[in-house]
Amino acid sequence: MQFNKPLIRGVLQKRYKRFLADIDFGEQQFTTVHCPNTGAMTGCAEPGFIAYCSDSDNPKRKYRYTWELSVNGNNEWIAVNTQRANQLAGTALKTGFIPELANITEWQAEQKYGEHNSRIDWLGRAGNGQQCFVEVKSVTLNDHGQGYFPDAVSTRGQKHLNELILMRQSGQRAVMLFVVMHTGINEVRPASHIDPKYAQLCIQAAELGVEFYAVKTHISDAKIELDRVVRFQLR
């Protein structure tokens, strides 16, 4: 996934009200930008981090710029725009990047499903007609190379796991795909120390046949691309 136009480099001053951040693009001229991330963003949004933003080039938009990337004090790159994870997941699924899912050739994004009229990130169909429901999560919480999800208690994440369990019990394939959007992370596991209910649901889901995969990305100010499949540990 290549950025359409060069990103604008600045220095993060603060993130606030979940969807806003102030960034200095030079000469102490702070600009308020859109933050496309509803999570806690632990370790991703410290004042002084380098921040890269895309420019909508739309003067009518309330916040012209969108925060895309951070670079922390260890020179690790972090993609903070969670929408990018879904795009990269689509590339991984459509190109057979994950061998276990390579037999599925038809993929559609944002399809309605489940008992609560939810939307699945990606819905696939194999040649035998079996459907495959894929929920995508962006992973940016890093602890010495270990990635964790979620970075805060996530009732929404718990709901998604329960719906994947129902899909699996109905005879379809159900997949949780974690996209690592932090270059310092080398494997992923549920954050049992943050959301023990979510972690326990992961174990329950796996026992019932829900599949778990994680892919790592390479990130730069020019593009974000798939790097490799990495280990996902339930415990």
Rank of each mutant, 00 (worst) to 15 (best):
S154W: 01
P150R: 04
G157V: 03
P150Q: 05
L123F: 09
T82W: 08
I104T: 09
E106N: 09
L93E: 07
N103W: 13
N142V: 01
V139G: 02
R84V: 14
S154P: 10
E100I: 00
G157T: 03
D151N: 09
K94H: 09
C132T: 07
N86S: 12
G90T: 10
F97P: 04
K112M: 11
A92T: 01
Q83F: 12
H144A: 10
L93F: 09
G129V: 05
V80W: 12
K94I: 03
A152F: 04
E135T: 03
K94E: 12
L88K: 10
T82K: 08
K159D: 15
T91I: 12
H160F: 09
V134W: 10
N72K: 04
Q83W: 12
R125N: 02
G157W: 06
Q83D: 14
G114L: 03
Q83C: 11
T140L: 09
I104S: 07
N103H: 14
G114M: 08
A109W: 10
D143T: 03
Y148E: 02
L93K: 06
E100G: 02
W107K: 14
A85E: 04
E76W: 06
N128Q: 06
A92Q: 10
E106D: 08
A109P: 15
K159M: 09
L88C: 06
L123Y: 13
P150I: 00
G157Y: 02
L101K: 05
A126D: 11
S138P: 05
A109I: 11
E115N: 15
P99K: 04
L141V: 02
T91G: 09
N74L: 09
S138V: 01
S154I: 01
N74H: 07
Q131I: 02
L123N: 07
T95G: 12
Q130H: 06
E106T: 07
G73D: 15
A126Y: 06
T91V: 14
L123Q: 14
T140I: 11
A109S: 14
L88T: 06
K159F: 15
S118Y: 11
G96W: 02
W122C: 06
K94Y: 06
R125G: 00
A79C: 15
N81F: 10
I98Q: 06
G145I: 00
E135G: 05
W107F: 11
N162C: 10
T91P: 02
I104N: 05
I78F: 13
E163P: 03
L88Y: 12
Q131H: 11
H144D: 10
V134T: 12
I104Y: 10
N74E: 10
I78V: 11
G96K: 02
H144G: 03
I104F: 11
L88S: 03
G127N: 14
S118A: 14
E106C: 07
E135R: 01
T95R: 08
H160S: 12
A152D: 08
N81L: 05
A92M: 04
G96A: 03
A89S: 12
K159G: 11
K94L: 06
W77C: 15
A102P: 13
L141K: 04
I78E: 13
N75C: 09
E100P: 05
G157H: 08
N74T: 01
N72E: 07
G129F: 05
N142L: 01
E163R: 08
N72H: 12
I120T: 08
A89T: 06
N86R: 13
Q87D: 14
I120A: 08
Q158P: 03
A109F: 12
